[in-house]
Each structure stands twice: as structure tokens, then as C-alpha cells.
């Protein structure tokens, strides 16, 4: 318990991290609880209310079908955050595993990296479109497609770091002691990869939310009846010149969330670095 209190105290000792964490908690709480209790239908159409500017009635204005944007942003957060987290999670797991194997085992390096390079030679969005068209448009298929798109990026970063860490003397010391290879990977290499992986994690979270918007815009994203921040921007883009709020508010939601996660990610990374931590 002491340990946890200490960790939290350290984490929040920087005010900006505290603010960012508060934003994340608020966004997540809204995403989880608001739809349960509000009873509002975010898909309710009102032809009379089309493209209304923000007012006391509609805080963020309405879209081209007269749907209340503030409601849709709150409802959409659910899906967007889920897409971001799930994509980041899966691509980091797969990318770390591949990068670690390629970087550590010389024999696996060429085969793995050939596939990774081939995947990276496609533009992200093109690969995403192809994958979703093959898999079929659903929420989970979008996550799967995006996770595949971002895996090579993580694998490359992890491989590069592994190549460096593998040559460090403490790895030789472990080998000289007879420490098993799996343990060297997990106890010596992996912990020293935390910083670059965490940076990738927060980046991919933000990218995934944006990419999902791109896929939606191109008509291969999440089905439009599911409100995500991406689908909202995508479907309203053609009205943006007349009704800027239709894209500005979902955009702010994306940026705010991604930025907050990045700041918290930095805080966690510093916390994980023993050099910046005093042993209690």
C-alpha cells in the first residue's frame, strides 16, 4: 500500500501529469457511465435542427442530420478510446515480440525484417484500406487492421534498441553466469526497452484514432451508425466550410485525449526509470 501511495505521489508530483491524468479519467468516466444513465439517443435525427451553431441547447452544435454533437462526442469517446487502446495494445505486443526476436536472434533477423519492410513499403492508409476490405468493416476488424498496420513500426524501434542492448556488458555478464536465454530476454532486455515502447504506445493510440477517422472518411471504417470521433469528422467534412463546429469539436476531443495520454505516458516512463527514482 505504501508502495502504491509512493508511486502515485511520484507520478503526480508534476502538475501537468496530474491535469492530463484527470482529463483521461474524466473522458473515460464519461465514455463508460454517461450512456448508461443519460437515456439520450445519440442517433436521434432532427431535420429542423440541421447544422446549428453551438448554443445553450446544443453545446457543440448539431451535424448535417440535426444530431446533437456534444452527445455524439460523449458517446463516440467510448468507441474511439477503445479503438485507440486496443490498437496500441495489440500492435505493441506483436511488434515487441517480433522486434525482440529479430534483434536478439541473428538467424531470425532477416526473415522477420523482410516481412516487416514489405509491410512498411505500403502507405499506412492503403494497407489499412486493403485489410479492412479483406476482413470486412466492423469495429474489431478495424482494430485488427490498424494493429497490423502499426506493428512493423513498433517492431523496428524494438529491434533497433534490442541490437544495442544485446551488446551491453550486463548481457554478457548474464551469459557468463549461465542465465538462460528466455530470462535474458525477459529480465535484461525487455525492461530496458520500456521507454521506446511506451513512446510508441502513446503515439499509436493517437494515430489509431486519427486513422480510424481516415478509414471512415474513405468509407471502409467503422459502420456509420457507430458514433466514433473519426466517423463524425468523416461524415461532416463536406459541411466543414459552413459548419466548422462539426469537425472542430470532435477534433478537439481527439487531440485532448491523445495529448493527455502522451503526457501521462511520459510520466510513467520517467517513473519506470530507476535513474529518476530514488529507492525508497
Amino acid at each position: 500500500m505504501d508502495q502504491l501511495a509512493y508511486v502515485l505521489k511520484r507520478l503526480f508530483s508534476r502538475r501537468i501529469v496530474l491535469v492530463a491524468a484527470a482529463v483521461l479519467v474524466a473522458v473515460t468516466a464519461l465514455a463508460v457511465f454517461f450512456p448508461m444513465f443519460s437515456g439520450v439517443d445519440p442517433n436521434a435525427i432532427s431535420v429542423m435542427e440541421r447544422l446549428k451553431a453551438p448554443s445553450s441547447e446544443h453545446w457543440a452544435g448539431t451535424d448535417e442530420l440535426g444530431r446533437d454533437l456534444s452527445m455524439r462526442i460523449v458517446y463516440g469517446s467510448r468507441y474511439s478510446i477503445m479503438i485507440g487502446i486496443a490498437t496500441a495494445f495489440f500492435s505493441v505486443i506483436a511488434g515487441t515480440a517480433l522486434g525482440l526476436l529479430a534483434g536478439f536472434f541473428k538467424k531470425l533477423d532477416a526473415p522477420i525484417m523482410r516481412v516487416i519492410d514489405a509491410m512498411m513499403s505500403f502507405p499506412d492508409i492503403l494497407l489499412g484500406i486493403s485489410l479492412v476490405s479483406i476482413l470486412g468493416a466492423s469495429l474489431w476488424n478495424v482494430v485488427l487492421a490498424l494493429a497490423i498496420v502499426y506493428t512493423p513500426r513498433v517492431a523496428r524501434v524494438v529491434r533497433a534498441s534490442t541490437l544495442v542492448i544485446r551488446e551491453l556488458l550486463f548481457v554478457d555478464a548474464a551469459r557468463a553466469l549461465g542465465v538462460s536465454t528466455p530470462r535474458i530476454l525477459y529480465a535484461h532486455i525487455l525492461p530496458n526497452l520500456m521507454s521506446p515502447v511506451l513512446v510508441q504506445l502513446t503515439f499509436i493510440f493517437a494515430y489509431a484514432i486519427l486513422a480510424e477517422a481516415g478509414l471512415s472518411f474513405l468509407g471502409v471504417g467503422v459502420p456509420p451508425e457507430i458514433p466514433t470521433w473519426g466517423t463524425m469528422i468523416a461524415s461532416s467534412l463536406q459541411y466543414a466550410d459552413r459548419a466548422f463546429w462539426t469537425i472542430v469539436f470532435p477534433g478537439i476531443a481527439i487531440i485532448l485525449t491523445a495529448l493527455s495520454l502522451q503526457i501521462v505516458g511520459d510520466g510513467v516512463r520517467d517513473l519506470l526509470d530507476p535513474k529518476l527514482r530514488k529507492s525508497a
Binding site: L168, L169, F170, A174, A176, L177, A187, P191, N192
Partner: peptide, 17 residues
């Protein structure tokens, strides 16, 4: 058989107590 290395900074894993 064991070894003691030249560089005492690189020879200890910074993430381990």
C-alpha cells in the same frame, strides 16, 4: 569461471536492484 569487466557502468543492468 567468471569475468570482471572493464566498464563498471555498462556491466550492471540499470533496471535491477
Amino acid at each position: 569461471m567468471q569475468i570482471i569487466f572493464q566498464d563498471p557502468y555498462a556491466s550492471l543492468n540499470p533496471r535491477m536492484r
